[in-house]
C-alpha cells in the first residue's frame, strides 16, 4: 500500500501524519477536508505515524500509533486505525501541552459563551456534544477542552466527535446530514464512528469563547431532562479530576479553574432523550443571552 503524508491544522496545532493504513487514507480526507488539510507547514507540533511493526505486517496484522518515533498503546487491528489516530493524538496533546489547562471534557459555544461538559465515560458526553453541535452550537472540542491560563478563554480544536455503540445510530437519526467515518468495530470502547465537525464550527474556529456554563451530564433511560444546580466547589472538583495536566500546572491550574467556575453557572443534568436535552440546554443559553437573566430562572430548563 502506498504511503500517505497528511498535514492537518486543528485549532492551534499543526499535525504531520504518515501512514499506509487504508482506513486513515480514506478517513482523514473525509473528516478533515474542510480547509484543514494543508500544505507542509514549516513547523508541526505533532509528528505521528500509524504503521505496522515489522512482525505484524502479514500474519494477523496489527497497526500501531507512534508519536515522535515511540510506539504508544498496544498495536490494534488495522480496521481501528482511525480511532487509534484520534486517541493517539489526544494522548500526545494531553502529555505535552502545558500552555493550556487540558481538561477531559467536551465544550461548545453559543455566540461567545461556552458550555463545558465534563463527565465520566458512559455519561453521554459525546452524544450530547454531537447533538448540540448539529443544532446550532459551535463545536469547540469533544474530548479535550483547552483553557487559556490568561484570560480564561477556551481554545477550539473542532476535531471529529467520537461516537460509540448505540450513540452512532442515535446521532444518525438526530442529524441525518452529519458525515460519519466508517465504524470501527470491536475496539476497546466497542464500535466507534467519528462524526465530522459541522462546517460552521470549523469556519468560526478562531472566534473567542468564554465559559458560561458547566454541565455534568448523566444519561438515564426514560428520564426527563432536568438541570439541577451543582455547588461551585463540586463543579470545581469535577473539572479538576478531569484536568489532565492539573498537577503539572499546580497553582496556575487552580486559579484558572477557579476563574472558570466563578464565571459559570454549574449544573448536574439528567436526561433521557437527546432532543429534549439539546432543547433544554439551548433554552438555557438563550435565556442567558437576555439581559439580567444570569440567575435562578435559567437554572431550570424544562
Amino acid at each position: 500500500m502506498p504511503r500517505s503524508t497528511f498535514y492537518l491544522r486543528t485549532g492551534p496545532f499543526a499535525i504531520h501524519l504518515e501512514t499506509r493504513e487504508e482506513r486513515l487514507r480514506e478517513g482523514v480526507p473525509l473528516l478533515y477536508d474542510d480547509g484543514r488539510l494543508i500544505d507542509r507547514p514549516e513547523f508541526c507540533d505533532f509528528h505521528v505515524t500509524v504503521e505496522r511493526p515489522v512482525l505484524r505486517r502479514w500474519f494477523r496484522p496489527k497497526t500501531a500509533f507512534h508519536f515522535e518515533g515511540a510506539a504508544l498503546f498496544t498495536p490494534s487491528p488495522p480496521e481501528h486505525a482511525l480511532p487509534l489516530f484520534e486517541w493517539g493524538l489526544n494522548w500526545a496533546i494531553g502529555m505535552t501541552v502545558n500552555q493550556y489547562l487540558v481538561v477531559h471534557a467536551a465544550s461548545l459555544a453559543w455566540g461567545d459563551r461556552a458550555l463545558v461538559i465534563p463527565g465520566p465515560p458512559g455519561a453521554g458526553k459525546s452524544t450530547l456534544c454531537a447533538g448540540l453541535a448539529s443544532r446550532g452550537w459551535r463545536l469547540l472540542s469533544d474530548e479535550l477542552t483547552l483553557l487559556r491560563l490568561d484570560g480564561g478563554g477556551l481554545v477550539a480544536l473542532a476535531r471529529p466527535v467520537s461516537l460509540k455503540n448505540e450513540s452512532i445510530e442515535i446521532i444518525r437519526r438526530f442529524a441525518p446530514e452529519a458525515v460519519f467515518s466508517r465504524p470501527a468495530e470491536r475496539t476497546l470502547k466497542g464500535t466507534v464512528a467519528l462524526m465530522k465537525p459541522p462546517a460552521e464550527s470549523v469556519k468560526r474556529i478562531a472566534e473567542p469563547a468564554l465559559p458560561a456554563w458547566v454541565v455534568v451530564p448523566r444519561f438515564t433511560a426514560g428520564a426527563a431532562a432536568r438541570l439541577s444546580p451543582r455547588p461551585k466547589a463540586e463543579a470545581f472538583l469535577e473539572l479538576a479530576a478531569n484536568a489532565i495536566n492539573y498537577h503539572v500546572l499546580g497553582a496556575a491550574a487552580f486559579s484558572a479553574l477557579g476563574e472558570l467556575v466563578d464565571r459559570s453557572l454549574c449544573f448536574d443534568f439528567a436526561y433521557g432523550d437527546l432532543g429534549e436535552a439539546v432543547a433544554g440546554l439551548t433554552a438555557l443559553a438563550e435565556s442567558a443571552s437576555l439581559p439580567q437573566s444570569q440567575g435562578g430562572t435559567a437554572a431550570r430548563a424544562t
Partner: peptide, 21 residues
C-alpha cells in the same frame, strides 16, 4: 524563539519544574 516551538519549550520547562517540585 518563534511562537509555536516556544510553546513546546515552555511546556517542557513547566513539566520539568513539576518533577523537581
Amino acid at each position: 524563539v518563534p511562537e509555536q516551538p516556544r510553546q513546546h519549550l515552555r511546556s517542557a520547562l513547566i513539566a520539568a519544574e513539576k518533577q523537581r517540585r
